[in-house]
């Protein structure tokens, strides 16, 4: 197991139980800069792990640190404010709002989002809004969804929704993004496009933790891989090492029986 000496996300002793079922049992994980893959058979607890880290679920025990601050049990909005955001496995577009509005919602720290500002300081938030609008348009161009900017998000295709989901979290300008199967149900062309963008963004300094089932994609994309099994970290390290690890093969084979 390779050590991460300078982790951005540091999780220690995380536990989560549902009734009598243990979804996560004493998990330790350190995630550094760059693109990290998170793999594991179905039911390994990957999405539950995301939910616990980002505050959608409150962990029963353990500690989550992000960028040297304790974020254990904080509300999702507070975690996002710290610069750690996540996408949802099934994209959650806001159907009755336009794509542009979906995007403009995202940037952090908009002054017009505060009630007093919205009521009293129209001039101030208008300047802000011009900037937000430009950023949203740029992002839409970057992910090539600018032709549907004025469509209701509910009318988008599955692939466009995936892109919108990604665009939205990027617009919050986070330090780290947790991607929950961004490639599931996406055609190969779009898959390549999304992966290219992720690489572009990595070079701009974003870090990713990336749930994916396709081992080959993980091999090509990630510098480091963490394998989860039955609510714990089975192993982690270089993709090539992990791929040949007997325990990993067993975990995956065990699932197929």
């Amino acid at each position: 197991m390779t050590e991460i000496h300078n982790p951005i996300l540091d999780v220690q002793g995380l536990e989560k139980h549902f009734g009598g079922i243990t979804a996560i049992g004493g998990l330790d994980m350190r995630v550094g800069e760059g693109i990290t893959g998170l793999i594991g058979p179905n039911g390994a607890g990957k999405t539950t792990f995301f939910n616990c880290v980002t505050g959608a679920l409150t962990p029963d025990a353990g500690r989550v640190e992000f960028a040297d601050g304790d974020i254990t049990g904080k509300r999702p909005s507070a975690v996002a404010q710290e610069g750690l955001v996540r996408t949802f496995q099934i994209p959650r577009e806001l159907p009755e709002m336009t794509v542009r509005e979906n995007l403009q919602l995202a940037p952090r720290g908009q002054s017009g989002e505060r009630l007093t500002q919205a009521w009293l300081r129209g001039d101030e938030f208008a300047t802000d809004e011009v900037r937000v609008r430009e950023k949203a348009t740029e992002m839409a161009e970057f992910l090539e969804i600018d032709h549907v900017l004025d469509a209701k998000a509910g009318t988008l295709s599955g692939g466009q929704r995936k892109l919108l989901e990604l665009a939205r979290v990027l617009l919050t300008e986070p330090d780290m993004i947790l991607l929950d199967e961004p490639l599931a149900g996406v055609n190969p062309t779009l898959e390549q496009k999304i992966l290219d963008r992720i690489h572009d963004l990595e070079s701009q300094g974003y870090s990713f933790l990336f749930i994916e089932h396709d081992i080959d994609v993980i091999m090509e994309t990630c510098e480091r891989v963490v394998v989860m099994h039955q609510g714990q970290v089975l192993t982690s390290g270089e993709p090539a090492d992990v791929k040949s690890d007997d325990r990993v093969i067993e975990a995956y084979l065990g699932e197929e029986v």
Binding site: S77, L94, L105
Partner: peptide
């Protein structure tokens, strides 16, 4: 529309 979205985006 979906409370979890703005919450996840930091609102």
């Amino acid at each position: 529309e979906d409370e979890s979205v703005p919450e996840a985006l930091g609102k």
